[in-house]
Write a protein that binds this DNA or RNA. Sequence first.
DNA 1: TAGTGGTCTAGACCACTCA
DNA 2: GAGTGGTCTAGACCACTAT
Lengths: 230, 230
Amino acid sequence: MRSPITWQSVQAEALRRLRAGLWTPGARIPDEAELARELGCARSTVNRALRELAAAGLLERRRKGGTRVPLTPVRKATFEIPIIRLDIEARGQCPGYRLIRQATEPLPKAEARAMRADPGAPFLHLLALHLADDRPFCAEDRWINPETPGLDGADFETLSANEWLVGNTLFSDGAIGFAATAATPELAALLDCAPDAPLLTITRSTRAGPRPITAVRLFYAPGHRLETRL
Amino acid sequence: MRSPITWQSVQAEALRRLRAGLWTPGARIPDEAELARELGCARSTVNRALRELAAAGLLERRRKGGTRVPLTPVRKATFEIPIIRLDIEARGQCPGYRLIRQATEPLPKAEARAMRADPGAPFLHLLALHLADDRPFCAEDRWINPETPGLDGADFETLSANEWLVGNTLFSDGAIGFAATAATPELAALLDCAPDAPLLTITRSTRAGPRPITAVRLFYAPGHRLETRL
DNA sequence: TAGTGGTCTAGACCACTCA
DNA sequence: GAGTGGTCTAGACCACTAT
């Protein structure tokens, strides 16, 4: 009895052929049935291996058209987006949190568009600072729908809104964006950096089905880098 | 004969239960066999549905431990990283390319570390500008291993190194990082922006097995945003 | 030790799409 | 119309790990 061929080994073999140039860009590769015969496994095993490569952008598959090596592969990079506190702890630093401001204010247009909410509607507006080893790590500028269930009982003095939302709302739909912005005077004071310093900025908006939940801008202290493997 | 249950519909039902709060954070959900019985499908169909949710960070699965809703879900965001020219075309703009400088120089430490190459080794150093509708889009500062096969025949006056590498080298291993940096005087002149303007900066390094290939910094013109759905 | 997810198989039918 | 990938099924065995 042979030990069974795993989909991982089929995938590794496919990668080997891609890297060795046996399967060249633009060319069609053998179909699933043929690879299954050649490698001595079931077609579904080949399917799983190649499906994942296609999802990663390393192959293109079409019914009847077969599987091809793309001429211009679209690489995909995946970032993990943990809770800020856990991110700081993962760096071996001691996380801190300070609420700077909290008020109910009319929702600005940009945030309204991102959440698909009504501009001018009264939203809870928070400004907070996350600290790593007592040094500024990231400023959080957040707008929260006051109709979010359970919001009344939340105390954002001690618990980051980031964490409260993760534990108390149900994800549905969202968008995220990366940009570079210049530090405003207030942000510069919070983050202890020069005014107009370049800040990596992450914008996130979240909805639960039809209901807008929250829009947030995270301004990371100068020098912050977000990294991942390809 | 009933129409078959698809893994997508099982996944949708699981998401519905998560959003409806039927499956709450920290709680264990029914095991695969039970869900399969309940939904009237094969266990492998349930497995595929839940496996993808676990990969997305919405569930945690462990053998014998069962499947749970994580207390602190780690969201994952995936960005597509196309060739710059295709990115510009996808925006409905006309792409342009200008080579600014090309020389062989000793590899700086930062790039050497990123590629795991020897600092000071002679590398090909390119500085180029990508244009969208004749306006500066992105500056490309690239270091290429001169021992990369086929490099002699490449003409970077007319063809972006970005594209040449995609078509002529085989991917193996790489890293990518995002940051915000201030425009140097030279970058400000190229990108037609103020000196010290905040620039979204993407750093990428690529290796093919044991061999370092290229390290590149892309400086996007002010205002550039990178977006994706969650 | 026993329960649960991870995976393989062999066969089947369907959906898309190319010629 | 026919070839290819997409998926479902039923059953099986294995690997991990909680108890």
